[in-house]
Design a protein around this nucleic acid. Structure first.
Length: 467
RNA sequence: GGCGCUGUGGCGGAAUGGUUACGCAGAGGUCUGCAAAACCUUUUAUGCCGGUUCAAUUCCGGUCGGCGCCUCCA
């Protein structure tokens, strides 16, 4: 299997430390607001990594975190905690906000058919692990304390910035962000933030340095290493995390252990709406609920996501969502053939059904090439819908559908059979046609169409499919 | 200002130093009782200018445009 390794900017052969085990850590959401399609692009692509590993014989252990404390409004460790801000907005406590949007996120994961991670871990349930890690860094001399928190001294970690190929001096030139003047370097980041003197936070804990809460970055290092070991096979996240969050994770993790933090890094690019990325400030987010309101299912969104490569900036529009809907209908029509196997005597049937999942696994193993996987699937679908499925092919056919679902998560196995009543109508229409009663025949066809069932009169008889 | 990515047909979106995926949409045709599906054809696709090469959309340089990061943000 090959994968693009972000820091090296090249496609590399993927070699885990202890095959078939693959340790994967994914930066999950900060649960202070509803997830939007940008999140789903990201997590579907992470899901494709996990699926691709599995169908290529690996056994991933996948840990994803939920950031339910400590992510400030600014990555520069300034401003409010997002959770506290969300709480104020909704007149609830930060704890309520976290649990509300955690539930919202997990429900979306199910709807999008994203593989359930081996472990979903919350920052607030690992405060002691984070404090321990900060203590370790303090003992090794990487930290200093100023009036608003404990900071990591990036000058003690000379490789800081290598990962993102940052030119720290040049970055400073145009930076528009103000920072605490007590910080030794602008890029130094908070490991622990103190609670404000004048008020009580919803979320705060005691620590050796004073009451407060962990910085945003430390949770990922503490939790990933706790559950997956000091060196991860794969660390993933959104492309926006490269410069700050992942750079900081590497600094604090490698400073603490003296070992390489992760061997491979996968970053999902952003999706654009009307040529711009989704962000709070542009107020242009679209949620899964918005999409469903327009009549599209999560499966359609998922297919649309797979149509572009994870490393390219993709574009979202309802027009392309509609294209994905039609494409999904075609795949579902193919899946419906499992209920319509019949004996045929023609020469069709040379298609190697059992090779389809293998072929998909191979395509995806090339840097998660989902566009090519779908191109291949469309060819399969077209071919299968022009031959008839023979009864003795049925086992292979169903296995093939299962294989496609394992690879792509499109839920083709969930396509239901039509009712006996509907089947009876199809028979009635055949009788009418035999009697050249075209009016009745067309009435029945129209009737079924209104129920979402399309009929095609193939050589060997009618085939139904889903609209 | 610094760094990075990018510019493919009506739309989305791959790939490639020489024969131009795939999906959606449009047009014509074959087939069909009529449709649908399928198949065939079709709608002058690789921003612009140079360079390298027998050959560039693909490599290099320049130029114009778009986007991202350096604030929020997957």
């Amino acid at each position: 299997m090959k994968i693009y390794n972000s820091p090296y900017r090249q496609i590399e052969e993927f070699i885990p430390l202890r095959p078939p085990l693959v340790t994967v850590y994914t930066c999950g959401p900060t649960v202070y607001d509803k997830a939007h399609i940008g999140h789903w692009f990201n997590y579907v692509r992470m899901d494709m990594l996990i699926r691709t590993l599995i169908i290529n014989g690996f056994e991933p252990k996948w840990v994803m975190n939920i950031t339910d404390v400590g992510h400030l409004v600014s990555d520069a460790d300034e401003g409010e905690d997002k959770l506290e801000k969300g709480a104020r907005r909704e007149g609830k406590s930060a704890w309520d906000i976290a649990s509300k949007y955690t539930a919202d996120f997990l429900e979306g994961m199910q709807q999008m058919n994203i593989t359930t991670p081996s472990l979903i871990v919350k920052a607030t349930e690992h405060i002691n692990d984070q404090i321990d890690l900060i203590k370790l860094l303090e003992n090794k001399g990487y930290t200093y304390v100023i009036d608003d928190g404990v900071y990591f001294d990036t000058s003690k970690f000379p490789e800081y910035g290598d990962f993102a190929q940052l030119d720290l001096d040049e970055q400073k030139t145009g930076a528009r962000v103000s920072f605490n003047p007590q910080k030794r370097q602008p890029q130094d980041f908070a490991l622990w933030k103190f609670s404000p003197k004048d008020r009580r936070r919803d979320m705060e804990w005691d620590s050796p340095w004073g009451k407060g809460f962990p910085g945003w970055h430390i949770e990922c290092s503490a939790m990933s290493m706790k559950y997956l070991g000091e060196t991860l096979d794969m660390h993933t996240g959104g492309i926006d995390h490269i410069a700050v969050h992942h750079t900081n994770e590497i600094a604090q993790s490698e400073a603490a252990t003296g070992k390489r933090f992760a061997n491979y890094w996968m970053h999902s690019n952003h999706v654009l709406i009307d040529g711009q990325k989704i962000s709070k400030s542009l107020n242009n987010s679209i949620t899964l609920a918005d999409i469903e309101k327009r009549g599209y299912s999560a499966d359609v969104l998922r297919l649309h996501i797979l149509e572009s490569h994870y490393r390219s900036q993709s574009r979202f529009s309802f027009e392309s969502l509609n294209a994905a809907q039609n494409r999904l209908n075609d795949y579902r029509s193919m899946a419906a053939l499992r209920y319509q196997a019949r004996k045929v005597t023609n020469d069709a049937g040379t298609f190697a059904l059992e090779d389809v999942p293998k072929e998909l696994a191979g395509i995806l193993a090339n840097d998660l090439d989902t566009p090519s996987a779908l191109a291949f699937l469309s060819q399969v679908s077209t071919q299968l819908q022009t031959v008839h499925i023979e009864e003795d092919m049925l086992d292979h056919f169903v296995k093939m559908l299962q294989g496609i679902d394992n690879a792509l998560g499109l839920r083709l196995m969930e396509v239901k059979d039509i009712t006996d009543e509907q089947k009876d109508l199809i028979h009635q229409r055949e009788s009418a046609r035999a009697a050249k009663n075209w009016q009745l025949s067309d009435e029945i066809r129209g009737h079924l169409q209104r129920q979402g069932i399309a009929l095609k009169d193939a050589q060997h008889g009618p085939i139904w499919s889903l609209l």
